[in-house]
Design a binder for these strands. Structure first.
Lengths: 146, 146
DNA sequence: ATTGCGATTGTTAATCAATCGCAATATACG
DNA sequence: CGTATATTGCGATTGATTAACAATCGCAAT
């Protein structure tokens, strides 16, 4: 059994909820890639897999996944929430191309150190650092020159 | 004439648009404080000032303000876009209390230096760095202890 | 295997913010 | 002034999310 499966099952059990076929199927789709997703892309994914799961079920599952720490809301340029799963992912930040929407990830511990200091100075206890760099990627930059 | 007024007027003129009484009134409300705002809070503000401007007008103005660089979308914990104006504001980042929603601002040039390096490494041309620290503020931490 | 109960599901209807279409006004400019 | 164009507010519309509900499912105790 994959670790995410085990972890989510026990999260559900602790609340008297059940790990159904639908929930398992949705999780499989989520963990099949490291791509960011939203309700719609996930629904499409499921269709491609020949699954007919209603969007309502997806909407209902997402808060549970967030609470259990399986996924989190990601940065994006879209006007609606997108998510990313948190297994096999170290904490990281994002470079977002404002033209094509491509997202690259990076990690920089020096920044976290600095931010720890900022939080202390301001009297905040940090939970999470979210860093999004809006930029233009090399491909789009070449395009623009034309 | 305030600089934001002049700047927005010329932006509009360059596009054959006009600086109307409504647009001026909305801008005044926006620049009257340094608080973040959304369409609804702005509409409320205008009501308090005795102005009856429809939300549609606000919705139509916002993209113009963003394009002209007068405001930008801000980080927030709300599920819909919020904005902040960019006059008399140095570039800065946000500490957001996840309990009470309080936002504190800070500035850290060391971080920008590091990010310049990251962008170069990844082949991105940076436009803007957005850093949001999700945290619990000192007041809320005291509350939680009880 | 069966039962019973609460959780879960898909469908449909309701909600809500955001956008659009249009007729009435306002504005710029000759 | 008078015309052309931009702007406004209203109300209708859209699209995404949530709620209500009746039918089914999962699971633990028979």
């Amino acid at each position: 059994m994959r670790d995410w499966e085990e972890r989510f099952t026990s999260f559900l059990k602790a609340r008297g909820l059940t790990f159904t076929r639908e929930r398992k199927t949705i999780l499989e789709a989520i963990f099949a890639t490291h791509d960011h997703f939203d309700v719609d892309s996930l629904h499409e994914d499921l269709k491609k897999r020949g699954e007919r799961i209603s969007v309502a079920t997806i909407y209902r599952l997402i808060p549970l996944l967030v609470e259990s720490g399986m996924i989190r809301q990601a940065v994006s340029r879209a006007g609606h929430p997108t998510y990313e799963h948190l297994f096999g992912h170290l904490p990281h930040h994002h470079l977002i191309c404002v033209r094509c929407g491509r997202v690259a990830e990076f990690r920089e511990e020096r920044i976290e150190k600095i931010l720890d200091g900022v939080c202390e100075r301001e009297g905040f206890s940090p939970i999470e650092y979210r860093l999004g760099v809006r930029a233009v990627c090399s491909t789009c930059r070449r395009e623009e020159k034309k």
